[in-house]
Amino acid sequence: MIIDVAKIAKEVKVKLPDLITRPVGRMMYAATAGKLSIIGAGETVILDFNSVKVIDSSFIDEYIVKLILDSREKDFYLKLRNISPISEINIDSVFNSYSNYKETRIAVAREEMGKNNRFYIGPLAEQESDIMDYLRLNMNAGIEDISRFSGIDFNVLKILLDELSILRVIRRNNGEFSPV
C-alpha cells in the first residue's frame, strides 16, 4: 500500500510543505492508521513524503515512531519514500535518541539512498549496514550466501539477521532474507 502523506495532510486540513508539531502528528497518525486497517499480514506500506519539506521531531515521534511500533505489532513493513535531507536528519536524530535511552532500537527502510549513503534511517551497526546493502543488491539470499559475502561468523550473522528482522528493515521468508 502506498500512503500519500501530502494527500492525507490535505484530508485533515494541514497545510504543506511542513509537517510539524505533535497535534499535527497525532491527526495524521489517526488518519493513516484508519487506512492501514485493511492491509494484509506482511504487506509493505510505503509512506510517500513527496511535497513535504520539513518534519520535526515532535511530528516524527507522534507519526513515524508510532507507525513503526504498529508495524511490529500488526505485522506489516514500513518504508519511506521522498524524504528530504532535513527530514532525514531529524528522523535519524529521533531514532538515535530513542535507541540510546530506551535500550531498544528503531530503524526504518527507505526507497532512495539517503545522505548517509544507506537505504535505511536509524542506528544500525556497520555489519548490519553491509547486510542491508547486500540484500538490496541481491534481493534475496540465504544465510550461507550472506556469510560467504560478508565474512561474518555464521553465528554472529544469525543474531544480526534476527535483529534486522525484528527491526523490520529486512524480511525473512522460508529461511531466505530480502529487503523491505
Binding site: D18, V54, D56, S57, S58, S84, P85, I86, N90
Partner: peptide, 20 residues
C-alpha cells in the same frame, strides 16, 4: 539549500515548548 529548513525545525521546536 538547507538553512531555511533547519530554521523551520528550530522555530517549530522552540515555539512548541511554550505551550507544552
Amino acid at each position: 539549500d538547507s538553512v531555511t529548513d533547519y530554521f523551520v525545525t528550530v522555530i517549530s521546536e522552540l515555539c512548541q515548548n511554550i505551550f507544552e
